[in-house]
Write a protein that binds this DNA or RNA. Sequence first.
DNA 1: ACAAAAGTGTTTCCTATACACCCATGC
DNA 2: GCATGGGTGTATAGGAAACACTTTTGT
Lengths: 187, 187
Amino acid sequence: MVFNGWLFEKTETLDQAAIRVLYHLTGLHNIYMEQLIVFSEVDRDPGDRTISVPYYALINIAEHNTELIEQYSAQWFNLSELPDLIFDHNDMVLQAIKRLQYKASIQPIGFELLPAKFTMRHLQKLYEAIMREGMDKRNFTKKINALDILVKLNEKDMESSKKGSFLYKFDQEKYLEKVSNGLVFKL
Amino acid sequence: MVFNGWLFEKTETLDQAAIRVLYHLTGLHNIYMEQLIVFSEVDRDPGDRTISVPYYALINIAEHNTELIEQYSAQWFNLSELPDLIFDHNDMVLQAIKRLQYKASIQPIGFELLPAKFTMRHLQKLYEAIMREGMDKRNFTKKINALDILVKLNEKDMESSKKGSFLYKFDQEKYLEKVSNGLVFKL
DNA sequence: ACAAAAGTGTTTCCTATACACCCATGC
DNA sequence: GCATGGGTGTATAGGAAACACTTTTGT
């Protein structure tokens, strides 16, 4: 989602301001966000000297509050159909994509973007979208299972096929335990 | 080197301000610098609301201007003997180390820290210092040579041993060509 | 019966690592 | 002649990538 946020207040950190703005726009809490580097070109905003600290967030498009988005005339775009943005905002988006790809390659960041229950195929499609490349489903499944941070449920999603495909959930507890034991995830 | 820089001016970017401050302190130009993430905790500076954008730079300790450093009472520290710094500045240093390790693992960033001519051993010692781990000299040499961005000179450094060890220089042209061909360096 | 997606193992290759000896020189 | 650091090659193991067929079920 592309949106040019507001200013931050004296009583909050930049992280808090980003969280606040995103909440106003989507009604969502507890969203993964990460700060990118500061944009401070003197003439980037022809009107005023403006220094911007962009953030990117992982928002499950199915979960946001449509009304709020519309109210502020924010909009969703497909990356492949990204329009020309104002000032240097296209650079910001590019930076966000690169950062996301890096992050996703060393952390199971993708789970933030899925519903609580999801299929292997959903997860793979998501990673393929982030990495902009196709992946072999056998190798993908192997890798994910090797991480041992998913729980396979006794339920199937019947939407996508006649056979149905098993649902999984992310095991946050296991994940945190592994991280605290110093494990680094490579995907 | 730990130094708490000055403010930036209306006429410069943050990058430019960082370059300017570093120049004042060391007399050095064309130094590799990278911006870290913004520190904006409301009470990080008990006196004033202060937002800091830390940078780390790669400075060859042999090349800086000692007088200037002293004039501003900046100081060099060994990382293993880092003192308690003011406010959240220790966090900044930690962040810089992590970032440097990452960068060094995917780009031949270490060359910035060496003189124009250096030995394989120098380079290895530098990487060992950055990564805080010992490396096998055969494997190290192999890796570096595989990158094919060094030129072996017909000169030897006679300081470190009786046999002497060959000097190399960094081939910036080759390096840039490889980068522009999309090659990613893994060290 | 067939179309459509799900699920599952093995082989191959390549990269990363471990490892030990000879060389040249100054003293 | 010996002590010091410099230089070099090979064997092995582990991880990544390539690859194809069977299963289930709705129509």
